[in-house]
């Protein structure tokens, strides 16, 4: 029973992280229907920005957190402006391969500047955020993650619900042509959604970096884990991404714990194929997928 509870807690925390990482991915897909293979690299870049501000520039933690977020925001706008905008209306494979090329470029740059070693942030989280109650042990970082993640979810919920930019973004996601004819600046919405997605990705990168240390291979690998998560949750549902993440996280830890550790990494993809065959729009996605 102890083992079960440990796995449950571990799976929930890992899953929440997956969900958080998948949020930015969903945001890009929702507004511009781009499947972003460079998502893992965006996550890594956020973590490395934070690392650079904290350890190289020696800026206070909170300030460098905000600076790193701003850097990711700008990077998102730049990516959309330079690389994605010329491809509006081009066939799918070009868009997909462009993000694959971007992923290789970013990874090469990160490896060039920082190398493939593991870095850690200085320890700064207060112990009070953790839970240490008999067998249930949650380190402070997970507590902080939960708080940051929930905060971001609420903020974005409010943003999409009430702000005019958020409403524009929803309208573009809903029907691009109608939004265009009603005077929504669709290109600006694309840029904004890339910027916000890069920001969210960078934020999850920082959180992952606090938990596991900063290593470009691990962080960009998360970008591939995102696929089962978003397919399970529905490609265009932000809440679905969180729930899909938690389900995939639980699934991983339970197969790792009870069946075999080596099966752990491949189980999400087996589930992915099954969902695609049985319920391609996922748990919370729009049932708009075009069947053949």
């Amino acid at each position: 029973m102890d083992f079960f509870i440990q796995l449950l807690v571990g799976g929930l925390s890992v899953g929440f992280l997956y969900g958080l990482s998948a949020m930015g991915f969903v945001m890009i897909f929702k507004s511009s229907s781009v499947l972003n293979f460079a998502h893992g690299e965006l996550i890594a870049i956020g973590a490395y920005f934070f690392l650079a501000f904290v350890t190289w520039a020696k800026i206070p933690i909170l300030l460098s957190f905000l600076l790193a977020l701003a850097g990711c925001f700008l990077l998102g706008i730049l990516i959309e402006r330079i690389f994605l905008r010329p491809l509006i209306g081009e066939p799918l494979i070009f868009v997909v391969m462009l993000t694959v090329g971007l992923a290789a470029m970013f990874k090469g740059l990160i490896l060039f500047i920082w190398g493939g070693n593991l870095f850690t942030y200085p320890d700064f989280l207060p112990k009070a955020l953790g839970i240490d109650w008999k067998i249930i042990r949650i380190p402070p970082v997970y507590g902080a993650t939960l708080i940051i993640g929930t905060l971001f979810l609420i903020l974005f919920g409010l943003f999409f619900k009430f702000s005019s930019q958020g409403i524009y973004m929803r309208s573009v996601a809903d029907n691009q042509r109608a939004a265009l004819s009603l005077g929504v600046h669709v290109k600006r919405v694309f840029a904004l959604s890339w910027a916000i997605a890069a920001l969210v990705a960078g934020m999850s990168g920082m959180v992952l970096g606090i938990i596991n240390g900063v290593n470009v291979h691990d962080l960009s690998g998360i970008g591939l884990k995102v696929f089962p998560v978003v397919i399970l949750g529905g490609l265009d549902s932000i809440g679905g991404a969180i729930i899909g993440g938690i389900i995939i996280g639980l699934l991983e830890t339970f197969t790792g714990g009870y069946i075999s550790p080596s099966l752990r990494d491949v189980v999400p993809y087996i589930v992915l194929v099954l969902i695609l065959l049985l319920k391609p729009y996922g748990l919370f996605g729009l049932k708009e997928i075009e069947r053949v």
Binding site: V100, G101, A104
Partner: peptide
């Protein structure tokens, strides 16, 4: 190398 490979694709 990885960077140039990505750049070529892009």
């Amino acid at each position: 190398r990885e960077f140039v490979f990505g750049l070529a694709i892009v």
